[in-house]
Simulated assay, not measured.
Amino acid sequence: MNWKHLIGGVVVGVAASYIAKEAIIKNSGLSSNEVLQIAKAAFKEKGPINGSWIQMEKETLHTLEASFTVYRGGITRMNGDKQEVYEFVSNSETGNILDVNQLA
């Protein structure tokens, strides 16, 4: 066997495994719609909601303790005659809400 063929095969194998690993990591976790449904269920526990939205792209959130892949979204609801708007950040793997901020 020729050493060039052996080394070439190893290089191709390593490259293919790296590409496959990146594809699996990118597609792991919950979809944005699944995360939005989890967030809506959590907000509905405190009353009805009027609207909701979520960003389709995942992003990385760095904290002092760890880094998370997250989705950002929002919920609107009426409190009497006043509209309340909340923004949330949810873990893309578990759907857990990591942070909530009231905007208006």
Rank of each mutant, 00 (worst) to 15 (best):
1 M>G: 13
2 N>G: 12
5 H>R: 15
5 H>K: 14
6 L>M: 07
8 G>H: 11
11 V>G: 01
12 V>T: 15
13 G>S: 09
15 A>R: 03
15 A>D: 03
16 A>Q: 05
17 S>A: 15
20 A>Q: 00
21 K>N: 08
23 A>F: 05
25 I>D: 07
26 K>G: 00
27 N>H: 10
27 N>C: 03
28 S>V: 06
28 S>I: 08
29 G>D: 09
29 G>I: 05
31 S>C: 08
31 S>L: 08
32 S>D: 15
32 S>Y: 12
35 V>Y: 07
36 L>D: 02
37 Q>M: 13
38 I>M: 06
39 A>R: 00
39 A>E: 00
41 A>W: 05
43 F>D: 03
43 F>M: 07
44 K>S: 14
45 E>R: 14
46 K>V: 10
47 G>I: 14
50 N>A: 08
52 S>W: 02
53 W>P: 00
54 I>C: 05
54 I>W: 01
56 M>I: 11
57 E>V: 06
58 K>I: 10
60 T>A: 08
61 L>V: 04
62 H>F: 11
63 T>Y: 03
66 A>Q: 10
67 S>K: 02
68 F>T: 06
69 T>R: 09
70 V>N: 01
70 V>C: 01
70 V>S: 02
71 Y>R: 07
72 R>E: 10
72 R>K: 11
73 G>K: 00
73 G>N: 03
76 T>K: 02
76 T>F: 02
76 T>I: 07
77 R>K: 14
77 R>D: 03
80 G>W: 10
81 D>C: 04
83 Q>Y: 09
85 V>P: 01
85 V>T: 13
91 N>K: 04
94 T>I: 05
95 G>E: 12
96 N>D: 15
96 N>I: 04
97 I>M: 07
103 L>R: 07
104 A>E: 15
